[in-house]
Design a protein around this nucleic acid. Structure first.
Length: 215
DNA sequence: ACGACGTACTCACCACGTAT
DNA sequence: ATACGTGGTGAGTACGTCGT
């Protein structure tokens, strides 16, 4: 029977060569799946003899843990979402780079999305990140739609506002006070004798950073 | 009592089989 | 054709067992 004449359902039943699983490693090493799992999360919890056997089996089978299965079982994806206003502004690049480095060191992967300075787009991107099962979300600035925060609360999803800081903010935030920074800058210019100012400001709609500096 | 280890269950989703 | 139930997927983990 040629490939074309095999009914579709039959063809789907043909199993492809699959990658080695945790079960294969356990079987090969002569230990339980729990022992292999423990070895992965904290090898010191496994006795030396079994640890060596697991190590050898992993090397022999060239086993790589299945990320989706890990997320399924642990209910943690070890991914963090970041929604930035735009990817077309280098100002966010260094921060994102540093953020991704810290996440990598902690064993997390970063998903980046862009809102184009739109609350609606930001909420859409947040829904996508939630659907992807991210373990937390980083936002830029303090100015976000209330329903976005409500959604995070519903999903019990940790989030943090960055780039801006207000001690009286209702939401966790880290950054600096743009208003105070602009006051200090202006005061300095006044102190050295300047009296007339022009300002080239960024987008202020849905952007508390630029708005506060302009104020 | 405690460390090492295994069993059984869990998760969300999909393919597939069966009943209507 | 559609709806529904079942089993399989891969790994984490709560809990129980065993040996020292």
């Amino acid at each position: 029977m040629s490939e074309e004449t095999i009914p579709k359902r039959k063809r789907l039943q043909k199993k492809p060569l699959r990658a080695p699983t945790l079960n294969d490693v356990a079987e090969h090493a002569g230990v339980s799946t729990a022992t292999v799992s423990r070895y992965h999360s904290n090898a010191e919890l496994v006795g030396e003899e079994r640890r060596r056997r697991v190590e050898a089996s992993i090397a022999t089978l060239e086993y790589i843990p299945h990320g989706a299965a890990q997320a399924l079982a642990s209910k943690r994806s070890r991914t963090i979402g970041a929604i930035v206003p735009t990817l077309d502004n280098a100002i966010f690049a260094r921060g994102i780079q540093a953020f991704q480095q810290r996440l990598q060191n902690a064993g997390y992967t970063l998903f980046i999305a862009s809102s184009n300075y739109s609350h609606d787009e930001e909420r859409t991107q947040a829904e996508t990140l939630i659907a992807r099962g991210v373990d937390g979300v980083m936002l830029i600035g303090l100015d976000h739609h209330d329903q976005l925060f409500e959604r995070f609360r519903q999903k019990q999803l940790p989030y943090i506002n960055t780039w801006s800081f207000r001690s009286d903010s209702d939401h966790p935030c880290i950054g600096f006070n743009n208003f105070d920074a602009a006051v200090r800058l202006t005061t300095y210019l006044l102190d050295i004798g300047h009296i007339r100012f022009g300002i080239i400001a960024g987008i202020t709609r849905n952007n508390d950073r630029a708005h506060d500096r302009l104020q």
